[in-house]
Every structure is written in structure tokens, then in C-alpha cells.
Amino acid sequence: MSNSEQILSTAAEWHRDGRGVALATVVTTWGSSPRPVGSKLAVDDQGRMIGSVSGGCVEGAVVETALDIIRTGKPQLLEFGVSDEQAWDVGLACGGRVQIFVEKLS
């Protein structure tokens, strides 16, 4: 089973158990970035997570957005990079930029 398969299977399982679940996927990268396009992170309504979209740099911010999206149901496209104040705060120190799509599993 591939990494993505494992993350999506787990997300589906959480959802079947009645938990709120959001999925985050790296959709674009520029320059050096820690995780390739297609990398995934699943988050449940308690903030539990499986997978990774950045090797730790922006996960905190992504989880926060994911929890919002579990409530609102409205997908969001996030962008992090060194030129970005928020990214600096959350510490994307590798110098790259990433776009991460976050959606609710419904």
C-alpha cells in the first residue's frame, strides 16, 4: 500500500466512525520544498493527523485551517513561502513555496 493510499484509507475509516475529517494535499511547489506534489495530510476534528505536507514546517497552520474547514465545509487553497509573513512565523525555512489544498471529507 502506498503512503497516499494509507492516508486516504485511514481518513475514510475515521469518517465512517463518524468523525469530522479534512484532507490537505500539496498541489504546487516552487524551488526546494520538503514534500512533493501529491503529499497528503488527513486531520480529524480532534486535531489528530496522519501523513505530512511539509515535513513539519507548516503542519500547525494547516491543521488550524483544516479544523475550520471541518466546521464550514468550504475548501481553501493555502500558500506558504519565505516571502510570506505567516510562513516565516510557522518556519518554512527551506526557502521553497508550497500551495496546499484543504477540503472537507463529506
Partner: peptide, 10 residues
């Protein structure tokens, strides 16, 4: 994503 679509994808 709808769970049904996710399961189809898998």
C-alpha cells in the same frame, strides 16, 4: 471530497 469518490479512487 465525497467519501464515496474517495473509496472509488482507492
Amino acid at each position: 471530497m465525497k467519501r464515496a469518490l474517495l473509496e472509488r479512487l482507492l
